[in-house]
Design a protein around this nucleic acid. Sequence first.
DNA 1: TAGAATAGTTCTATTTTTGTAACCTTTTTT
DNA 2: AAAAAAGGTTACAAAAATAGAACTATTCTA
Lengths: 148, 148
Amino acid sequence: MEERKMLALVDNIISIKPLFFKTLGKPIPMNSNITPGAYYAMLNLFNCESLSMSELGKMLMISKPNVTAIINKLIVKGLVLRASAKPDRRIIMIRLSAKGYKFVETNNKKYLDQVTKKIMFLKDDELELFSVSLQNVKDILLKMPTLR
Amino acid sequence: MEERKMLALVDNIISIKPLFFKTLGKPIPMNSNITPGAYYAMLNLFNCESLSMSELGKMLMISKPNVTAIINKLIVKGLVLRASAKPDRRIIMIRLSAKGYKFVETNNKKYLDQVTKKIMFLKDDELELFSVSLQNVKDILLKMPTLR
DNA sequence: TAGAATAGTTCTATTTTTGTAACCTTTTTT
DNA sequence: AAAAAAGGTTACAAAAATAGAACTATTCTA
C-alpha cells in the first residue's frame, strides 16, 4: 500500500476512538458506579466466557496489579466470579456472574437505544454501509496476531 | 434496519475501541509525558487548526475546568498557544505551536511505523478493505449531528 | 530435587481524570 | 442600564488508572 494511503489509514485509526465517543456517547454512563476499565473487563468476559487475570491484563493492556484492583471491585459488586479449579492451580479464571451478564445486557440495551436514536437520521443505505464497514474493520482487527 | 443487525452494530461499536488498542497499540506512548487527554486535544487541534476552550470540551467530552487543566499543561510545555483577539473577547482560541505540530507529526510517524509493522502481514486486498471500511465509518460518524 | 519461571496479590505511590461551586469578564437580552 | 447568559478560570475534592517492587504459591525445568 502506498505511503499516502497508509498515512490516511493511521490518521483514521487514531481519530476513530474519540470520534465514536463524541458522536455516539460512551458505552457506559459515568454515573453507573462501574468504571470504564471495569466495564471493558466485563465486555471481554461477556464475549470470551472466561479469562485468567493475565489474559485480562493483556486484553485491556493494563498491569496485573491493575487487573486485580478492577476485578476485586467487580467481585464485591457481585458482577464477576473467581473460578479457579484448573489443571494449573496458579491460574484464576474470571467469569461474569448471572448478575454481571444481566448488567452487560441491560447496559447494552440502553446503549442500543441511545445509539439508535442518534443514527436514526441516517438513510438506510448509509446505515447498511456503516454496519458492513464496521464489521469489516472488526474482522480484520480480529485477525491481528497481537490477539493471540 | 432490523433489530438483529442493530444489535450487531452496537456490539461492534462498543468493542471497536478496546480492539484498536489491543491490536494496534495506543496512539501515544505512555512514557511521552503527554497525557492521553492532552494528546487527543492536540489531535483535534491538528485537524481543526484552532478551537475554543468550550469547543475542545465538547470534542473531548470533558468539563471546562478539565479543559483548562489540560491546556495549561500543554502551554507550559510550549505545545499549544492561546490566541484570543476575536470579535468576542470572552473566547480564547487554542492552536498548536510549531513545536506542537512537530510533536504530533513526529508521534504520528512513530505510530505509523508501529502500525505498519503490525498490519504488514495483511494481504493487500485486506489492507485495502481495512482502509476503505475505516474511511466509510469515519465519513458516517462525521455526518452525525452531535458534531455540530 | 533445587532453581527458574509463571500467576496473582499486596503495598505503596503517583499521575490522571473528573466535576461542582464560586467567581470574573464579556456579551446578549430585555 | 440592569439582568441574564456565555466563556473561562480558580479552588477544591474525589475517583480512577497505573505501575514498580516485593512477596506467596504453584508449576516447570534441568
